[in-house]
Amino acid sequence: MVDEFEKHRSRMFALAYRLLGSAVEAEDAVQDTYLRWSAAHHDEIRSPGAWLAKVLTNLCLNRLTSARARREQYIGPWLPEPVLTDAPFETAERRDSISMAFLVLLERLTPAERAVFVLREAFSYGYREIADVLELSEVNARQLHRRARQRIGDRRRFDAPADARRRVVERFLDAAGDGDLAGLERLLAADVVAWSDGGGKAAAARRAVSGAAHVARFVAGLAAKFGGPSLGLAHAEINGEAGVVASVDGAVTVVFVLETDGEQIFGLRAVLNPDKLAFLVGQLADTKAAR
């Protein structure tokens, strides 16, 4: 019974994280699913994977309803909890649907639209399967998916090779560390936008910062704030994108996620809210312990 559940755990977490935008809440939803699995009559379950996906998705829908209300009261820009993806957390085919930009766009959708869109776009569910999971008609599932696509609209995608992303991160770190505003501006696209999520628990910009000059000053200001001999900077793949983990005296204080085409940075997201860094800190500890 436990072994069967564990076979599906990573896929369930991947689904729950996309539905909720929170790694901690995704873990809780997976655990709640396990409790229901433990109490179920397994001889009546023909397809464990389908059964688990249905239970988990509906648990996430319940959580999304309350989460939307909390996010309306959130202080400053809301960003998803960052997750490391350079471990075998995600397949390459699904990494686009775990990007910060994608998860933020999903916030435009109703819970039902989000569930349909994630199941269809990230996990390639057929409309009949989606209808079974959400207890809808197949026609309704198609309508929800079409409406979700309209709400999200066209989005800019970047598919730069890993080595090109790493070079951009290195240039970013060098310029930020030196306070080189001109160097930062050259690296940033003219229409670059930066968002920072402090959640009222860490100092962060309350609105998005736009334009190369303004974003360069924003980055330089953060670098100056956290700079010093105790500052540690490490490159990492975060949410399938180029990322930087910054720590002071060994404690992670901010995570940067960069949208880049391998030449310039078009979007920058900084997560400073300590509550949202807890899962990534745990991932880092697990990675260190495994070495």
Rank of each mutant, 00 (worst) to 15 (best):
R114S: 04
H145M: 03
S137E: 05
G250W: 00
G243S: 03
L181Q: 05
D261G: 08
D28V: 09
C60K: 09
Q73E: 01
R167N: 11
E237G: 15
Q283S: 10
T57D: 00
F279Y: 10
E6S: 14
S22N: 08
V255Q: 02
V116G: 01
A112G: 02
V244F: 12
A50T: 03
A182G: 00
R157V: 12
G177C: 09
L61G: 02
V24G: 12
S47P: 05
R171M: 15
Q150H: 03
R71A: 10
F158H: 09
A50N: 14
D159E: 07
G228R: 13
T287L: 15
R157Y: 06
A164L: 15
R206S: 07
N239W: 01
A182H: 13
D32P: 11
D197S: 08
A50K: 14
A208C: 01
E129S: 13
D275M: 14
P48L: 12
V193A: 04
L105Y: 04
E44V: 15
E263F: 12
H8E: 09
A242M: 06
T33I: 09
A141W: 06
A141L: 06
T253A: 15
S137W: 06
A39G: 07
A203E: 00
E107D: 12
A223M: 04
P48W: 14
L233F: 11
